[in-house]
Design a protein around this nucleic acid. Structure first.
Lengths: 214, 214, 214, 214
DNA sequence: GGCTAAGCGAGACGGTACGTCCCGTCTTAGG
DNA sequence: CCTAAGACGGGACGTACCGTCTCGCTTAGCC
């Protein structure tokens, strides 16, 4: 998916279309084995508990091979998360209806209630200690959804479905914020009644006629 | 604040009011030195970078002394966070006004925009890998505020300030969720305009007349 | 037996026959409990494995009490060795016969083939790293026997039982040296045949007529 | 010299003459640095005082590297003792003369009166608490000399230089026992007069005509 | 088809922190 | 003033991973 790797510094438009590099090419087999080993180990271990050493062992791959292609554990895990785990919540086409936004949110929420949410949560947690990691995850996961959502909001505003004095970012945060809040703080469950109440509130807010005297 | 320590198992009503325990009593000096050393080191290091060894060194305290009184690094850091850093956001008396709730929220948000928020955020992050840690932080920090907030909401509902068909928990999550969301994901700043927009939205939602046809 | 303790500096002839010192007197009970605990633990542990902490625990005695009366582990163990274990090889009266010397040697050898020898051996071993310990053991155990042995040799020389050009110290070393050698190096067993062969050789050497042309 | 290391279990005749093992080979540089650091530290510290940590530090080597190749401190020290310190007392060819045996003994005694003897002595001392250590030292140092000595004795017996009813082991113990005795117990010095008296006695004993009526 | 160069597995390397053990000292209250 | 209990500062232990470094061996494209 997004693994451009961390060693080539020639992203720029090089003269020839394909530089042709000498030597043995990267082993796709090793790459997949590594990603799969990581996911397999994530079944029973937290992101924190995983070690590069254990992944290399499990994958039957040398540690150096891992370090050659990923700068650190988290990048590898995020790649695994993306490549192997996330074909699901792929973006629908943004409709003009408020309900499209909410439907997508509910799909995400549903998915994140399980193992996947746990891992995403742990990636965000680790990201607190490594800005690059957080940014990478943001780019790869959060931003994509956000762009879709923002698109949807703006279209809906144009269509008169959502009142136009509403900040799109804040509206989206009002939807996703409480979800992540409960995922991370775990002070209360993410159950049907919570999701219903939340989406209803946001919908109501979005639809409300612009206050006249504001 | 809440550090009852992790070793005594006789909280029950023992025979005599004060059992009087043998041996040299815990050194309050060592305890404070440790907490202060932790905070001092947190100025320049992330929670992750802190090591028990460095704290012990900085505090002029034996490692064992630390392990005797705190089960792990995080508990120590949370205690430091509570004891030394948090006299600030102490609870006001819950008024009956919606604005009391929002004022308190703004105070918390203000405080969390700086160093303190970073630390809280890192504690929550570490909590993802240790349930006990998360619970401890929840109990000591989140729950207190939440109880106050919930109290305020309910009083306001009785006073007719907030419409009564609103789930108090969800309302509070709508307020705090987006704040934590931005603190943790950092996809957008926590600035005046965000806080204004957010509080206004929540206020509007809270005040709105119950929908008739729901 | 020999525990003069390491703190009082008033061995000198003080004015009054019994100075009468203030405060609670030393607890003989604690002293014996300590020595006995040490010996009990020596049944199953090497001198090295013993810790002051474990001895204090086993004896139901405070660590400080031990440190008050013995400067270190080894002194305590030697005292225990002397007081509780060694009434056996107490000195016979030195006879004038060579056979008295050899009989005593055989008694010592017999005793040292078991647990006791092991402990003595370990004390000597620890003594390699603490001159005081070695000296204390020397004074208390080795020297006593040596004095007896030397006495016996000299008497025997005067009586014409042992030839007079023989250095008494070397003769004794020829007897005890091989015994300690095998105890410490364990290259060969200390069995009947070894003891027979050794004592016979020494006896022969002691009796041999002085070489004429020396 | 004898450091076969403590991890390979395939000394047996494996299929191919040289198995060729994977991975980076052991660093001879690290090995020598470690042994030399150990010896350097032994100049000023007793065997007991040495710590693996200090050796690693001094050698500029990781602790794990040391643990990888030596099971404990003593094995490392013995290897250092052998490799770096002991080219000296290497075996002469065993002659048929009693004097060859005694000359060798005197060479050993001379060498052991200094630093080297101290270290050997401390190794034996530590060996009292770890059978493997003692055995390893025995094999590498004591046994070699003993074999030479025994060879010499037997040849001398065949040549009529030493009387044939003498147990070779006991004869050797009569020579070396007193030396080690004084080294370990330190009750008397190992000086010229002692060595002269000792060797003379043993020589006399060895030469003495077999007792007729034994 | 042989040459060159990078990728590969294995695993040793220097290093940092871990959590534990015991040292010898200290600080309580009680005897 | 001694005693039991036990907390204290300190230092070494042996272990776990880190990220780097050699090894000998593929595995490819280019000459």
């Amino acid at each position: 998916v997004a693994s451009e790797q961390h060693q080539d510094g020639e992203t720029a438009v090089s003269a020839k279309p394909e530089k042709r590099q000498a030597g043995r090419p990267r082993s796709e087999k090793a790459r997949m084995a590594t990603l799969q080993a990581a996911m397999r180990l994530l079944e029973d271990n937290s992101v924190r508990e995983l070690t590069i050493e254990a992944i290399a062992q499990e994958a039957g791959v040398g540690k150096v091979t891992i370090y050659r292609w990923w700068p650190n554990k988290l990048r590898l895990i995020i790649d695994a998360f993306l490549e192997i785990m996330t074909p699901t919540t792929s973006m629908p086409r943004a409709g003009t209806k408020l309900s499209d936004l909410i439907d997508h949110f509910l799909a995400v929420a549903e998915e994140y209630r399980g193992k996947r949410g746990q891992i995403a949560t742990q990636i965000v947690a680790e990201g607190q200690f490594d800005r690059d990691t957080l940014d990478y995850f943001l780019d790869a996961v959060i931003s994509r959804r956000r762009e879709f959502a923002k698109d949807a909001v703006i279209k809906a505003q144009k269509a008169g479905e959502i009142r136009s004095d509403m900040d799109a970012d804040v509206l989206i945060d009002l939807l996703y914020g409480p979800l992540y809040f409960r995922l991370l703080i775990r002070h209360a469950p993410i159950d049907e009644s919570f999701l219903a109440s939340l989406t209803q509130s946001v919908a109501e807010l979005a639809k409300a006629a612009p206050r006249t005297g504001a």
